[in-house]
Simulated assay, not measured.
Amino acid sequence: MHPISAFRFNGYVIVSAEGMLTDVHGVMPESLKFPGDLAFFSASLDRADLIVHGKYSFEDQPNSPRRARIVLSRSIKTLATDPVNDKATLWNPAGASFDDACNHAGISGGTVAVIGGPVVFEMFFDRFDVFWLSQAPHVHLPDGGPCFPGVPAETPEQILFRHGMRASEVEILDAAHDVRVTAWRRV
């Protein structure tokens, strides 16, 4: 067993003006994909030791098959190796701990990149060291799927703040579209 402090948890999401991650059909639309954000996201995942996401979230990048990952799944009782990706551990949090999932994946420490969806983010809200919130303020998805449970009643920023995080540095990722990423750091 390894202490949870052996891990550094980073979250990543890009959202519309309303805090939405997907369109009305539950798919991340092309309008939320910007080269600057994709480059930031890809470089961040390349530095991570482990990726954690739900079964509908993935990064779909050239390095994706080489990345160790844990995929939340309710279709198994505890843990299993993904039958189509030997770098992926399927994990049912109702049947096994995160520590058990990491052991199954062969990861004992380092940076964990949590990339969604909403339920997965919610599981790690109180563990995040940094949450990288990318925002595309000119993209509107009023009937889309929220990035976090509780959006749009609360903004993503309010939810991160409520979980002990504070906005820190901001980086412009696409000046023409005013896309920026804000690091929300645990205080």
Rank of each mutant, 00 (worst) to 15 (best):
I159D: 00
V130G: 01
D129M: 03
L160P: 00
G116N: 02
P118I: 08
G145H: 08
T155A: 07
T155K: 03
E154F: 14
Q158I: 09
F124H: 07
Q158H: 11
F121R: 00
L160T: 01
R162M: 11
S134H: 00
E154I: 07
W132L: 09
I159A: 03
P152V: 13
G144S: 09
P146S: 13
F148R: 01
M123Y: 07
G145Q: 09
F161L: 14
F131C: 03
H138G: 04
T155L: 08
M123G: 07
G150W: 05
G117T: 09
H138D: 14
A136D: 06
I159V: 12
S134C: 06
F128I: 07
F125L: 15
G117F: 06
T155D: 10
H140S: 15
S134V: 00
R127M: 15
D126N: 12
V130W: 03
Q158M: 15
G117L: 05
T155E: 06
M165W: 01
F128R: 01
G144Y: 04
H163G: 02
A136V: 10
M165T: 04
H140P: 09
F131A: 00
V139H: 01
P156E: 04
G150F: 08
W132D: 05
D143P: 02
D126T: 09
P137W: 00
H138N: 13
F148G: 01
L160I: 05
F128V: 06
F128N: 01
F161E: 14
R127E: 11
W132A: 05
P156Q: 06
F125D: 10
